[in-house]
Simulated scan of single mutants.
Amino acid sequence: MASALLCSSAIADTAYVASEKAKKLTYDNILIDTHIDVPYRLNKQWEDVTQATENGDFDYPRAKQGGLNAPFMSIYVPASLDNSAESTALADKLIDFVEAIVGRAPDKFAIAKSTTDVEQQFKQGLISLPMGMENGSPIQGSLENLKHFYERGIRYITLAHSQSNHISDSSYDIRRQWKGLSPFGKELVVEMNKIGILVDISHVSDDAFYQAVEISKVPLIASHSSLRAFTPGFERNMDDDMIKALGKNGGVIQINFGSTFVSKIARTWSDAFSKKRKEVEEKEGKDSKETEKFSKSYTEKNPLPYATLETVLDHIDHVVKLIGIDHVGIGSDYDGVGDTLPIGLKDVSTYPNLVQGLLDRGYSEQDIVKILSGNLLRVWRATEEYAAAH
């Protein structure tokens, strides 16, 4: 049944056909996606993404087809490495991978460390590779490490990931050891403002979010989050009050495409699967053959009910209705959410489908450009200007 599901999804995906107008609008403008997990994917299995690849959601040909010219490479460090030197070492290794991509194909890719870099590289026909750190664990409580990673190109830091760390509580962690940000976390937000690193509040607890909003002197970003209004009880997403606070702060929420982030039905499926898998893990072991066999059998018998492109558009609409067009963008989580991507948005070649959907819903070309990159560039530029003055 799994193979049949994938087949039917692929067929349904072809039902989305972007017009020439949508393609031109996509290709003629900077397109920033603030969260693509290529580096960690390559850490698990190296592939030359400067060429077409059989695996994953991203490679150069598909990025060109989709008009993607400024994907933030996620420097993702698992929470299991928190409080260890290995955390910092892995972050450096993943940055090395991004540099290796550019080294293999400097005619295709370039490291981007500023808004000016992105704009100039776009004019040159290059795909910019700015970087964001997903999980602040590699900072290890050291402002020298913060400076080190800034110099290496990190331009946003997701303060925590799936567990509370030395910076912040996590939305996924029932422990609330800091009741928001740690004392160092509060200091770190101030220093990130001063050095020019965007504060990313995806993954953090609600209390941590509000504390970051209060402390930060520049707008925040949610690099890959969606809306709790569509997934009640899923704290990883943002509720309407948080979105309003983000809008007042001048920030931007970059919508995550994963079906379990945007669809209540898919979220319910995921919760049920996770509960049953955990029971098997506790009995048989997390990496056991029995656990692997269970996962395969469960998904064959109970396939994931994929979201669609329309579901993602609903999230964008909701933000616009709440706080206006200036506060929403794209943070797909390609290469990070596995086989949960919605029909119509299965890989980086499909952004013109999103643009077509926005056109169909009456968005102006000017507003679509804001969603593609304008809003994120505004926030990034504000961060740069604040840092330059401090």
Results as ranks from 00 to 15, higher is better:
203 H>Q: 05
227 L>D: 00
204 V>G: 08
316 I>K: 02
223 S>H: 05
190 V>N: 05
339 D>V: 11
386 Y>T: 02
76 Y>K: 08
385 E>G: 10
46 W>H: 03
92 D>K: 15
81 L>M: 11
200 D>G: 04
181 L>G: 00
143 L>C: 05
198 L>E: 08
281 E>V: 10
213 V>F: 10
186 K>Y: 11
199 V>H: 02
297 S>E: 14
71 P>T: 05
74 S>M: 03
178 W>N: 07
28 D>V: 01
360 D>R: 00
49 V>N: 00
129 L>V: 06
52 A>P: 11
191 E>K: 13
335 D>T: 03
296 K>T: 13
121 Q>P: 04
322 L>F: 01
382 A>E: 14
26 T>G: 03
320 V>W: 05
352 P>E: 02
215 I>R: 06
198 L>T: 01
126 L>G: 04
183 P>M: 11
97 F>Y: 15
58 F>C: 03
179 K>C: 13
140 Q>E: 14
133 M>Q: 06
219 P>S: 04
368 I>W: 00
213 V>G: 08
190 V>D: 14
52 A>G: 09
231 T>N: 07
184 F>V: 04
13 D>R: 15
97 F>A: 06
336 G>I: 00
278 K>T: 13
166 H>S: 12
164 S>A: 14
336 G>Y: 01
191 E>G: 04
343 I>R: 08
331 G>W: 01
67 G>P: 00
97 F>R: 03
303 P>K: 08
270 S>L: 10
210 Y>D: 13
259 S>V: 04
341 L>K: 05
358 L>D: 07
62 R>L: 01
95 I>H: 00
92 D>Y: 14
129 L>D: 02
308 T>E: 05
217 K>M: 12
122 F>G: 01
166 H>Q: 12
208 A>V: 08
213 V>S: 07
276 K>W: 02
232 P>A: 09
132 G>E: 03
20 E>R: 15
347 D>H: 07
283 K>N: 14
210 Y>C: 10
261 F>Q: 00
41 R>E: 13
317 D>N: 05
73 M>N: 12
170 S>D: 10
62 R>I: 01
154 I>S: 03
276 K>D: 12
144 E>M: 10
161 H>K: 09
119 E>T: 13
371 I>P: 12
52 A>K: 15
282 E>W: 11
262 V>A: 05
318 H>C: 12
230 F>P: 09
203 H>M: 05
176 R>A: 14
332 S>E: 02
244 K>A: 04
231 T>C: 10
279 E>L: 14
128 S>V: 06
26 T>E: 00
34 T>V: 11
268 T>S: 11
221 I>T: 05
381 R>A: 11
295 S>F: 12
88 T>W: 11
212 A>L: 06
105 A>Q: 08
295 S>V: 14
67 G>F: 01
226 S>R: 07
127 I>D: 06
94 L>C: 06
232 P>R: 14
227 L>N: 07
136 G>M: 00
198 L>C: 11
89 A>K: 13
16 Y>F: 09
30 I>K: 08
353 N>L: 02
